[in-house]
């Protein structure tokens, strides 16, 4: 046992590679549909709670903030897939799209909640908010950015667009995730540790990409 541990410590790269290969092996055997389903569970539970549960005194606000937060969390998770492959040799690439689409789904629900449940079709106020309120503008731009990404998330789109063009388009996610994290901070009345941590994670995940791009 001690020898085994010692071997791991003395040769961390091999250890990581072995570990990575093992996780990748497991991941390869898992189809994507259970991940889609699992990803929808928190949203379904949240909606159930707000509609039937009576747990929230202000269900609209709970729905709105939590859906937005889930979206940000899934988007950040999708951005960890590539670094995991690079640094830990864990191959979960096939789940990247799943996580991204879950993020987009939650974002869409978040937006619709704001539109229909929070602002209640007050189109004048909705229009004014979109233009005049920086945090709403920022969030809305993030949503707009993610629309073409979600629309080209199917396998055929890569073939039709060409891998290079597709990859370039999908780099827009870096801007979207930063806008999302900034939007989260901007809507708060005071600074909170939680929102700052999300922004730091977003900056780190995007920063890694910038470092890679510069090295290419």
């Amino acid at each position: 046992m001690m020898e085994w541990i010692f071997a791991k410590i003395s040769d961390p790269m091999t250890a990581i590679a072995t570990f990575g290969a093992r996780v990748s092996n497991v991941a390869r055997k898992v189809p994507t549909w259970p991940v889609y389903l699992a990803g929808m569970v928190p949203g379904a539970w949240l909606i159930w709670q707000t509609v039937f549960g009576g747990r929230y005194i202000d269900p609209v606000r709970a729905l709105e903030t939590q859906l937005g937060l889930y979206s940000l969390q899934f988007l950040l998770a999708s951005l960890t897939i590539t670094p995991l492959l690079r640094f830990a040799r864990i191959n979960m690439l096939k789940f990247r799209k799943v996580l991204g689409l879950l993020a987009f789904g939650y974002l869409t629900l978040h937006f619709l909640t704001w539109l229909f449940l929070d602002l209640q079709f007050r189109w004048g106020q909705i229009g004014a908010d979109l233009v005049k309120r920086p945090y709403i503008t920022v969030g809305f731009v993030a949503l707009l950015i993610l629309v073409p990404l979600a629309a080209t998330s199917w396998q055929g789109a890569i073939r039709r667009m060409g891998a290079q063009t597709w990859a370039r388009l999908h780099r827009l996610v870096y801007i979207a995730v930063l806008l999302g994290a900034v939007h989260f901070i901007m809507q708060e009345k005071v600074w909170t540790l939680q929102s700052i941590i999300y922004l730091i994670i977003a900056i780190l995940l995007v920063g890694i990409r910038l470092a890679w791009i510069r090295r290419w």
């Binding site: 005194i57 609209v60 929070d118 106020q125 945090y135």
Partner: peptide, 22 residues
């Protein structure tokens, strides 16, 4: 007079339900 980050033109009445009340 709006709050710089959101409108004060209307308000959500707590407890009005999901579709109830602004």
């Amino acid at each position: 007079v709006d709050h710089p980050r959101w409108s004060q033109a209307s308000e959500r009445v707590i407890g009005a339900g999901l579709f109830g009340g602004r």
